[in-house]
């Protein structure tokens, strides 16, 4: 469960002055739901997910993640959170198993529970064949699978994905999408940011279209189609952010 209320973040930029990266965003996301954040470059998706992940301090508003306040209980929030970005990398001099073990330990998993979880996760993601290879010898697709394993080894109830398929080929991207769907089916709360229309259509139960730090529209794919009177989702999106077709 994620509940966001009027969340805002401004940066002071030397050239542009005050930048309102996120400007009063509110929505709720329930367990067993994939909530899409759709927005063009610079819309504020990363800033929003980073605030939810407690690595950026909001300038206004509040949010609860898995029942914990992101300002007052950041460490509890992080304990119940799985976080994965498309730009995430792995420790190159460690093996896949060492990386995932490290994060299991950081999450306070007992050695026995960590071993069980790693075995289970490696099996579902098919990591076992290269589990003891150093990460700098893995392919991009293999790395992404290890990154996913790292993000979910502690079985978080809430998952934040920030453009997790960027830089992946169609096959690997489909694997990630399938995995996100599986997380939903297990009853987790999933927030998924992207600018790829097809992923949104295929995956998201509800969508918030973000533009210039604000929510331009919120609803299911069909609701947004109805609202704009467009069929093709790209057109729906362009209409919602006020662009001419």
């Amino acid at each position: 469960m994620v509940a966001i209320d009027g969340l805002a973040k401004s940066f002071r930029d030397r050239k542009r002055g005050e930048v309102r990266a996120v400007d009063g965003v509110s929505f709720e996301c329930r367990p067993g739901e994939i909530f899409g954040l759709l927005g063009p470059n610079g819309a504020g998706k990363t800033t929003l997910t980073r605030m939810l992940a407690t690595i950026l301090q909001p300038t206004a508003g509040s949010a609860q993640v898995a029942g914990y306040d992101i300002r007052r209980e950041p460490e509890e929030v992080r304990r119940h959170l799985g976080y994965l970005t498309g730009s995430a990398a792995l420790y190159e001099r460690l093996t896949a198993r060492e990386v995932v073990t490290y994060f299991a330990e950081l999450h306070g998993l007992s050695p026995k529970r960590a071993a069980n979880r790693i075995e289970a996760v490696f099996r579902t993601l098919d990591i076992e064949p290269f589990a003891d290879r150093r990460c700098d010898r893995l392919s991009t697709g293999q790395r992404q699978r290890v990154s996913i394993a790292r993000a979910i080894v502690h079985e978080p109830p809430v998952l934040l994905f920030d453009e997790p398929t960027s830089g992946l080929d169609v096959l690997s991207a489909r694997g990630v999408v399938r995995f996100i769907r599986q997380c939903r089916d297990e009853g987790r709360t999933v927030i998924f940011s992207t600018h790829i229309m097809s992923e949104v259509e295929a995956l998201c139960d509800r969508i918030a279209v973000i533009y210039q730090g604000k929510i331009a529209a919120i609803g299911t794919v069909d609701e947004l189609r109805e609202q704009t009177g467009e069929r093709a989702f790209e057109n729906v999106f362009l209409r919602l952010i006020g662009e001419e077709l």
């Binding site: 690595i55 959170l81 970005t85």
Partner: peptide, 14 residues
């Protein structure tokens, strides 16, 4: 530089 810090900051470690 390599992009591993963010995940570490989101871990429960203070």
């Amino acid at each position: 530089e390599r992009g591993t810090l963010e995940a570490l900051l989101v871990s429960p470690a203070s």
